[in-house]
Simulated assay, not measured.
Amino acid sequence: MLLTKSQWETPFRTRHDPFNRWRLAGINHIATTFLVRAAGTRPDDPDGYSFIVADPSILVSVLEGYGATKPRLLAIDWETMVPVSSLWSYLCGDHRSNFLAYADAHGRLRACEPHQPDPLEASSKVLVWAHADEDAA
């Protein structure tokens, strides 16, 4: 989850700017925070947006908005940025809800939220997004 404080807001406002500008934002680690980087953008591209997604439940819909051009996805895992190769929905044991996990570049699955069951103990899993040409396992 992202957090801000009023003193972190920039004192400089552009006229008719609909956005609040922040000099600083914090991230708590209750759930994994993701950085979505548009594919094919250059550093000087004014439309080369990066999105910070602090709620894993909306991550899949954000990624689907890119269509066939797959963005780069990074998980902010405590003090490291982990390149994400795929996202998985999974069920475990007697839990009735689906959980979301991500796979790093080596294929290791990690739960998106700490209260989730271990994705390695999943009774079933479904690939919901992949960066490259990955097949469902």
Rank of each mutant, 00 (worst) to 15 (best):
F34T: 09
K5M: 12
D118I: 00
D77H: 13
M81Q: 12
N20I: 11
L63Y: 06
V62D: 03
A137N: 08
T4R: 08
P119S: 02
S86C: 12
F19P: 00
E134S: 12
G40H: 05
L73H: 03
P114Y: 00
V84M: 03
R110T: 12
Y66Q: 04
F12S: 08
K70E: 11
L127M: 14
T33K: 06
E121A: 15
R96H: 08
N98F: 08
W22F: 14
H115N: 00
A105G: 11
Y102P: 00
S57L: 13
G26M: 14
G67M: 14
R13S: 13
A132W: 12
V84F: 02
E79M: 11
Y90W: 07
A111N: 01
K5L: 14
Y49F: 15
T80M: 02
G40A: 11
M81Y: 10
H106T: 13
D55G: 07
V60C: 04
E79F: 09
E79Y: 10
R21A: 11
A103T: 01
S124A: 12
L24V: 09
E79L: 09
P46I: 11
H115W: 00
L100G: 00
L74V: 07
T41K: 10
F51W: 15
G26N: 09
Y102Q: 01
V128L: 15
Q116C: 00
L74R: 04
P117G: 05
F51G: 06
Q7D: 13
N20G: 03
S123L: 07
A136F: 03
R42D: 13
V60T: 11
S86I: 06
S50K: 01
H95V: 01
D118P: 01
G107H: 07
D104P: 04
R108P: 00
D135L: 15
S124Q: 07
T33V: 14
E134W: 13
T32D: 01
T80G: 01
Q116E: 00
W8N: 09
P46C: 13
P56M: 09
E134A: 13
V128M: 11
E9I: 15
L24T: 10
C92E: 14
G93H: 03
L91T: 08
L74I: 06
P18L: 04
D94Q: 10
R108V: 09
A130H: 07
F99W: 13
L35M: 15
T4H: 11
W88K: 05
T10S: 15
V82T: 04
R21E: 08
L109A: 02
A132F: 11
A54K: 04
Q116L: 01
G40R: 09
D133Y: 08
Y66H: 14
S85H: 13
D45F: 09
W129Q: 11
V62I: 15
K70S: 15
R96D: 13
T4L: 02
H95C: 02
H29W: 00
H95G: 02
T14Y: 13
Y90C: 06
R15V: 12
P11D: 03
A130K: 02
G93C: 01
A39H: 11
P71F: 05
D45T: 07
N28D: 15
D55C: 09
N28F: 02
L35I: 14
I30G: 03
E134D: 12
F19W: 09
H115G: 00
G67W: 06
H131M: 13
L63V: 03
S123M: 04
S57W: 03
G107R: 04
P114H: 00
D44N: 06
N98E: 09
A101G: 03
R96L: 12
